[in-house]
Design a protein around this nucleic acid. Sequence first.
DNA 1: CCCGCTTTGTGAACGTGTGCACGAGCGCGT
DNA 2: ACGCGCTCGTGCACACGTTCACAAAGCGGG
Lengths: 234, 234
Amino acid sequence: MPSERPRRRIPEATVARLPVYLRILGEQGDEGVECVSSDRLAELAGVNAAKVRKDLSYLGSYGTRGVGYEVAYLVYQIRRELGLTHDWPVVIVGAGNLGQALSGYGGFGQRGFPVVGIVDVDPAKVGTVLGGVRVRPIDELTQIVQSKRVNIGVITTPPGAAQDAAERLVKAGITSILNFAPVVLSVPRSVEVRKVDLAVELQILSFHEQRRATVAPGALRPVSGAAPRRTASA
Amino acid sequence: MPSERPRRRIPEATVARLPVYLRILGEQGDEGVECVSSDRLAELAGVNAAKVRKDLSYLGSYGTRGVGYEVAYLVYQIRRELGLTHDWPVVIVGAGNLGQALSGYGGFGQRGFPVVGIVDVDPAKVGTVLGGVRVRPIDELTQIVQSKRVNIGVITTPPGAAQDAAERLVKAGITSILNFAPVVLSVPRSVEVRKVDLAVELQILSFHEQRRATVAPGALRPVSGAAPRRTASA
DNA sequence: CCCGCTTTGTGAACGTGTGCACGAGCGCGT
DNA sequence: ACGCGCTCGTGCACACGTTCACAAAGCGGG
């Protein structure tokens, strides 16, 4: 029995890829595949095979040389490493467009992150039901967080309200925040913040589009027929 | 007149931060601030001051020693570098929860990315109006892309439909894709893809939560009072 | 006009991440 | 039982990104 503990610190870059491997392995498992090689997994994940092996080696030596990785076992190990052996309930602050969409999107709960509460400052929004959860006033945030043992908060407020939302979440006892507002949050060092900024993503795409235009001055898109060769990509 | 051209290749990490600087500079400008130092900008952006200076130095020498950076001029330079001197119209494929939220979210158009079209395969969704744009059948995608000169497509379909959506976008002439579906897209090398995967973000937070729990076995959260000291963070 | 204060711009050191290439180990067929 | 082919695990070199530390350069005051 390999009760080997992952001594090594896992690099952030690897942590960010493990969820991708996990999803793919889950799909393979559903299709009845019992074993995958690093080459196959790399192809499906759109990355280098050596990277896959190195990433997985941080979890321990769970592959079999000459054969590959047993899907079910690997899924179990990755889930354990990511802390997905139990659900992580989340609260959403901000019942605007995005907050509504996220709570309505069932994929959240399916992947182990059930939305157990949505709060908003706007009394007009309180009481409406989104994806099976009733919107509640923001004063009840602390009560929700503590009664449901919530560690993760999601901010989907307008920019101006985001810092206040973060402070309320922290005060309520939250230790991780996923921030959709285009604002740099100021929180205690002990709280982990990740941000998702759609405008930033689009501006990065814009940069590459613009560069393409200036480097190759073939101004007008060729609007050529179908896609030529294709490659796996992020 | 410093008609200096940015000879140097700009690192990806820098490109990803420029939009943040740009937003902050815009806010400062609105508040009447005319000049900022790298220290101040770093504080507002939650990064290291040296990083700010190095990032900005890739654009050219646009600061004044002993003084700082002129806000308006720097805004102009960053916008130019990011290709934001004109609007980039976008099309959205998938009028589900998220697609609706994105088109309803006005901040898109405000930041130079007007949504000029939404398409869906579901006839039931076609015809409804979201954020001022009518949902149209997916067959009209190519026509929209070409008549409106669209370069950027956004995929907000369910996972199973994402690859098809990508292929249709590519065929229509799109060269950049922002993908919200939890799927690795296969596209020609010439097409730039960025992905935003909410489940991945949550799983990364989960990893750190779990690690926290195993390293410091103080199991129960102290639920201490207010936030102690705070630091700028991402 | 010169001096000292401030802040930029950047070389150099360090740390993190990537990819190659190859040894080590496993299974299978004979 | 043995060798052969396959795939994992990893040392190493390289590229990328971050941070430090300091010289160069502008501004203001006397």
